[in-house]
Design a protein around this nucleic acid. Structure first.
Lengths: 153, 153
DNA sequence: CGCTTGCTTGGAGTGCACTCCAACTCTCTA
DNA sequence: TAGAGAGTTGGAGTGCACTCCAAGCAAGCG
């Protein structure tokens, strides 16, 4: 895996990220503290440690005194995890996916299956939301121009 | 409120619903048992009673022996509630909305506000989901045609 | 050196949305 | 009229995803 490939799932390459901290740092110097990861991902430090405990993270490198040092690879994994979480994938499923990644290339088919199933789920949810959006638009219209309000709720 | 208006948020008027039970029944004979409501809404009886306890339902009519008898109006309210729940509106917010409905017409502005805020929320969520859908599509492509797999996860 | 701020751990606590339980009563069919 | 199957209640329990706590170690600064 090369540097450019690694960065592809991160933000565009540049010397600084939005809030002024250097990000991403080039591979080799990519040893972020937990608070840097908090700043970048929006996840809490509690949550990051908890993710590790439950097996959702690969082994995180440590400083000589035992503090966590996250790599670019860890951040890109967290990017994926955050996206999946945001779309409602249960933590247990993500742990399963993490296990598959850990087991190596022969688990490609099962990973694919898991992803495809989740995509179906996401598509269904989008449809549901758009459905409700129509109901909301209708109700909002009714309330906005409340001319002889035709419904009770 | 007339029959046709009441039915507008229910399914199309017809003598039977999908599973053969008469639905909706004409106003006046609309006294559904809890299990009929379960069959129609997909909510559990537990949940229906719990909704009532927390103030999410208006007062439900009772038979002479104290059993619940739901009306068409109750069903249409449940339809709305289910849609809002499905789109992630917290139960507490729905309870607030129910209170406003209960308080009368002078709460129209606040109801409108609540609905508009939720609509914004739903729109944002749709955008998020579509964003992730793109990531999923990309990953699935990678796994599906796994020619020298370019990523580790 | 002392001070502040940050990081560590296992285990306990929280909030939400149900979900179930026990011990009944009621309704319906044979 | 007997028995099966719904319905009733308040309160306790469950599962998920965090979230916090206490007690202690570590790093940087004047």
């Amino acid at each position: 895996m090369t540097v450019t490939q690694e960065s592809s799932t991160l933000h565009a390459i540049g010397p600084m990220c939005a809030d002024g901290t250097p990000f991403p740092r080039p591979d080799g110097q990519d040893r972020y503290t937990i608070s840097e990861v908090v700043a970048h991902t929006g996840l809490s430090a509690h949550t990051l440690r908890w993710y590790e405990r439950i097996g959702l993270m690969p082994h995180i490198d440590r400083s000589h005194t035992g503090q966590r040092r996250y790599s670019n690879k860890d951040l890109s994994w967290l990017d994926l995890v955050s996206k999946l979480r945001l779309t409602g994938m249960p933590v247990a499923d993500m742990v399963r996916y993490a296990e598959l990644v850990n087991e190596g290339e022969h688990t490609y088919p099962e990973r694919l299956e898991l992803l495809v199933a989740h995509r179906e789920d996401v598509r269904k949810r989008i449809a549901e939301l758009q459905d409700t959006l129509a109901v909301l638009d209708y109700k909002i219209d009714v309330y906005a121009g409340a001319h002889r309000a035709p419904e009770r709720h």
